[in-house]
Design a binder for these strands. Structure first.
Length: 497
RNA sequence: GCCGCCUUAGCUCAGUUGGUUAGAGCGCUGGUUUGUGGAACCAGAGGUCCUCAGUUCAAACCUGAGAGGCGGUACCA
């Protein structure tokens, strides 16, 4: 049937959950990373880079009864039959690195790192299978002072990103408090109780979406959602549910007041008391350094879903400029979080190695900043040198390097096509100025500089092609030797005569 | 994993009761204009109608299965 033999072409497509990023997005993300790095660096943290792949057992991702890694990671067999997997966060590789180099590292070891992580999960809006995290961690520091520092770092990153007080909030809680509550409610921290506690954490994490009633169902027998799907509950008894929900709503914007409430709430529990003591120390440091309740609060509804946290936990949240009806800032949501994880490094070592850290999602944070109108995209538009005459290419490249030496972003047209084509290309690129020099100008020692933005405006008033071409709008002639000064002036918006 | 919607050109979409060579707009390439962007006009390229199987003289269209996309939900170390 076929007259024409069909060529089998591959379909140009991306794997789902993986993204191409445009120039604007990349610039915004890189700015954010640089801002965070400079905060970490001035606090004395050291940069570190670890590889994309780790051995799967080092990531701790083997299921108990399975001979291959958890499906949530991208894993492959190395040629020696060992399982390797792409890292799913930067914390597990840090734990491996510290354990591997324990003797050589100063303790506490404080490092920062940004890099891609990969999760083999179903992607959704704003959720990808590859994304960038930016972390800072202290390993080997047991005291709450290290946690207080991480909390202040989180706030400092917000400031470095360009946010003012009132546009962000860091919310702090302590896992030990909930441990105390559950202990008193008869839920042990080991065996079946450990799984139960994890369920409790996940349930509380859904407070903002499901509300207290939905979470109460999840803490009890379970919950059926609108689509008919059933979620198994944590099976707490009624008094335990009441205690947990009571705890999650115990905090107040006044940190002192919250501490007094918590002190009464945890009663005689050792875990609970220790948790309150840690928060007190954190409060002392924050208060001394002027990190007031306008930007850091204690919030008992913050738990973080992860199982490995053992002490203070916190989330950094963006508040939009928009206010709700009661005049409170609207929540955009959490862009980062962290906390103490004292068990992660000791997995490798048989010796206790306390650690605490902060991590934020670069893409999510950067895109939220753009939505708030805080992403400055003032990248200098490029200048383009047109190729009128190929025999003058050397001249064109010399001009370009002169402009670059003056810190002006510029390029010589290297494609094919007459000047008309070149200018169309320039329009599409968002070029602000085009430099024209043919043999005529060359002989006179001149260049012609066109302002494409201004020309585009003037074109609106011009009806015919002839009129357009003969008027040659928005361009001026300058001496070849003055090209840098002339371009600079026109970039600055100088008048064109 | 479960539920719902969707799939025809690079993009957005038409496409008659199942009928012969599948169209439009935008975009792209070339030209009118080999030294000047816009507009206009002319020409051209570009299709496994998601895939496979079935029904039929005949399928983009009907039936079945599968894949992919989107949204919700669960999981998210």
């Amino acid at each position: 049937m076929s007259k024409k033999k069909k060529i089998q072409r591959p379909k140009a497509r991306r794997p789902r959950g993986f993204e191409d990023k445009s120039a604007d997005v990349l610039r915004a993300e890189n700015r954010l990373i640089q801002a965070a790095f400079s905060v970490y660096d001035t606090h004395g943290f050291e940069p570190l880079q670890t590889p994309a792949f780790e051995y799967a057992d080092a990531l701790g991702k083997f299921l108990p009864d399975d001979d291959r890694p958890n499906t949530g990671v991208f894993a492959l067999h190395d040629d020696d039959e060992q399982w390797m997997a792409l890292r799913y966060d930067l914390t597990a590789p840090l734990a491996r690195f510290v354990a591997e180099n324990y003797n050589d590292l100063p303790k506490p070891y404080r490092r920062y790192q940004a890099g891609s992580v990969w999760r083999n999960e179903k992607p959704g809006p704003g959720r990808f299978r590859e994304f960038i995290q930016c972390d800072a961690d202290s390993v080997g520091a047991p005291g709450a002072a290290a946690d207080a520092e991480m909390i202040m770092l989180a706030a400092d990153v917000m400031v470095a990103a360009g946010l003012d007080t009132g546009q962000y909030m860091v919310r702090v809680n302590n896992r030990k408090l909930l441990d105390g509550i559950l202990e008193s409610s008869g839920v042990p921290g080991t065996g079946a109780g450990a799984e139960q506690r994890l369920q409790v954490l996940r349930s509380i994490d859904k407070l903002d979406r499901l509300g207290a009633d939905g979470v109460a169902d999840l803490l009890g027998e379970g919950r059926k959602d609108d689509s008919g799907a059933y979620t198994k509950g944590a099976n707490l008894d009624a008094s335990a549910i009441k205690a947990v929900l009571g705890f999650t709503t115990a905090s107040d914007t006044d940190r002192d007041k919250t501490l007094r409430t918590l002190e009464a709430l945890v009663g005689a529990s050792t875990h609970g008391k220790a948790g309150v003591e840690e928060l007190k120390l954190i409060d002392d440091i924050l208060t001394a350094c002027d990190y007031g309740p306008g930007r850091v609060v204690f919030d008992t509804s913050i738990v973080r879903g992860l199982g490995y946290y053992t002490g203070p936990v916190f989330e950094a949240e963006l508040l939009a400029d928009i206010k709700d009806r009661k005049g409170r800032p609207v929540r955009i949501g959490s862009v980062g979080g962290g906390g103490r994880y004292d068990g992660l490094v000791s997995r490798f070592m048989g010796q206790a190695v306390p650690a605490t850290g902060y991590s934020f999602g670069v893409s999510r944070f950067a895109s939220a900043l753009s939505r708030m109108g805080l992403a400055e995209t003032a990248e200098q538009p490029p200048v383009m040198i047109c190729v009128f005459d190929k025999s003058l290419l050397g001249e064109y490249f010399i001009m370009a390097s002169q402009l670059r030496a003056a810190n002006i972003r510029c390029e010589v047209f290297v494609g094919n096509g007459n000047v008309g084509k070149q200018l169309k290309y320039a329009d599409k690129r968002g070029v602000k100025l085009a430099v024209l020099m043919g043999s005529d100008e060359m002989e006179r020692g001149e260049v012609t500089i066109k302002d494409l933005e201004l020309g585009a405006q003037m074109a609106k008033a011009i009806k015919t092609n002839e009129e357009w071409k003969s008027s040659r709008p928005a361009q001026k002639t300058a001496a070849r030797n003055d090209i840098v000064a002339a371009v600079r002036e026109m970039l600055a918006g100088g008048d064109i005569i």
